[in-house]
Amino acid sequence: MHIPDGFLSPPVWLAMDLAAIPAVGLVARKAQGALEESSIPLLGVMGAFVFAAQMINFPVGPGTSGHLVGAALLAYLLGPWAAAMVMTSILAIQSLVFQDGGILALGANVWNMAMIGVLAAWLPYHSQAVASRRKAVIFTGAFLSVICAGCLALAELLISGLHIPAPVLAVALALFAVSAAIEGGITVAIIQAIEKIHPGWIQAGASGGKRTGLMVVGAAALVLAVGGVLVASSSPDGLERLIETAGLSSRGRALISTPLSGYEWSMMASEWLRKALAGLAGLVLIYGLCLLLGRGLIRRRSS
């Protein structure tokens, strides 16, 4: 899932890098606020711990074994802010020391695994309502973390102009689903084992109540948005048609062509820009729908 340099087109890696700068800044500030000074070595050692834990093989099926990715485990051990920061450090070391993931692609990898990967794991965990469903919640969080990160990586490759035929895409998604399920199982087993040694090491989720609904909606919105990005990037034409039938095309086209007309590079940029705008429009659409749905659910619940 680590995207190396050379795969992403300049607009994609540049956009992801620029978007990662404020995100990493925010995460660092929040993590600093949530921790004491004595935790600074702890964060680094936890990053090293994830590396070491990745070396332990887990038997998952006849003749097959898997290993940990770690975003979900870190989220449950350190809380979301510190986990996102430690994941960012891990990705930086992996790209610099091990050539696992590119330097220009670091922004994309940070978004996929450190930001969205941790968020996707934390949202269901934070919403846990009943203690008896805890195992399922941890499994779901770790599962979503891996599958969301994988889908985003695929979407970024597709937007970069790498054509992946539909059957190959389906196989890739199936593989992601399998490794996500493995991650879920491993994370549940590790959390249970750590709890046996010292229950206080695991972050408490929400104690249930009002926020549960919001978090479930948040998790659902995230999954829908990630899926939406993937669908939009694999078939931008379909989305364009949708926008056209919705009567947005003339306005959208004016918006695209006016500021760029007269420039020589508009011919080159327009293909990419059209794809990007179509994807973005789809994302906004899905986000709006989820927001409305969430508001409606909360209102009904409180009334």
């Binding site: 500030r29 070595p41 990053g47 090293a48 930086a92 070391i93 020391v97």
Partner: peptide, 27 residues
């Protein structure tokens, strides 16, 4: 680059191989 990230990465790199070795010993 934020200082927190740099410090975390420095500690990570310092202890990475210590812990990896420990995990190998355990195996």
């Amino acid at each position: 680059v934020p200082k927190m990230i740099i410090l975390t990465t420095q500690f990570l790199y310092r202890y990475l191989f210590v812990l990896v070795e420990q995990s190998q010993h355990m195996r």
